[in-house]
Simulated scan of single mutants.
Amino acid sequence: MASQNQLTFVNKAPEGVNEAYQSNNMPVTPHFEKNQFLTPHWHPNANEITTCTKGSGQVVLISPNPSSPHQQGTAIKNVYDMTVNQSVFIPKGYFHYFINTGTENFDLELTFSNPNFDILTLDNVVNLLPEYIRKPSLNGNPTIEILTVENKTETV
């Protein structure tokens, strides 16, 4: 049985959010040709409902592991296959991306809880890091100790 915190597909907006999403001006309608994907990103100020309108593909969400709160490295990868008329609810701040896994075009309709939604891509964030932090972090082998907020000191 799925836990209360586990993300699942829905065929409509979750209860209580229909009005907010339907009042947005225009949905965003990305189109992916075979083997294309949308870069990993998140929306810090909006929930998203994504509906497949053509083809098939996947939505991949990286989310906190509800069974291991407050521990480093406890994110989990959720992969959902999408076909026409299926939707997924993506909570605000959840890292995600889309992939066309089918043989035809993969079209989506994205609606947001905030018509002025922001998008931050992995590329945006990584490029803002200084090289001495970026390189060891991306290699998965940082050479400096990872400190928790409680242990961090302001030494230069």
Rank of each mutant, 00 (worst) to 15 (best):
A13L: 13
S67D: 08
E145R: 12
T153V: 10
P64V: 01
D81P: 01
K34W: 03
P64I: 01
V156Y: 15
T83Q: 05
P27H: 04
Y80I: 09
Y132R: 12
T29I: 11
L122C: 08
E48T: 03
Q86I: 00
V17E: 07
N124S: 10
F32L: 15
Q72M: 08
P30A: 06
S87F: 05
N100S: 14
P130R: 00
Y97H: 11
I62V: 05
I90R: 05
E33R: 14
G73L: 04
V126S: 13
Q58M: 02
N151R: 12
G93H: 04
E131R: 13
M1R: 10
D118Q: 11
P14S: 07
L122R: 15
T53S: 07
N151T: 00
E19I: 04
Q71G: 00
T101W: 01
G102S: 03
F37V: 09
P91Y: 00
K92Y: 01
T51S: 02
N11T: 08
P136I: 07
I119W: 06
F9Y: 01
K77E: 06
S56Y: 03
T111W: 11
Y97M: 08
L120N: 14
D123T: 14
Y94C: 11
L147D: 04
T50Y: 05
P30C: 00
N139T: 10
G102H: 07
T121R: 09
L7D: 00
E131Q: 12
L129F: 14
E154W: 12
T8K: 00
E145W: 08
G55V: 04
N105L: 11
N11F: 08
Q72D: 01
I49M: 12
V88Y: 06
T143H: 15
V10T: 14
V125D: 09
K34L: 03
A46R: 03
A2M: 11
N139Q: 12
T111A: 15
L122V: 13
S68Q: 10
P14H: 08
V88H: 02
Y80V: 02
V79A: 03
N124R: 09
S113N: 10
V125I: 15
P40S: 14
N124C: 09
E33H: 13
Q6E: 08
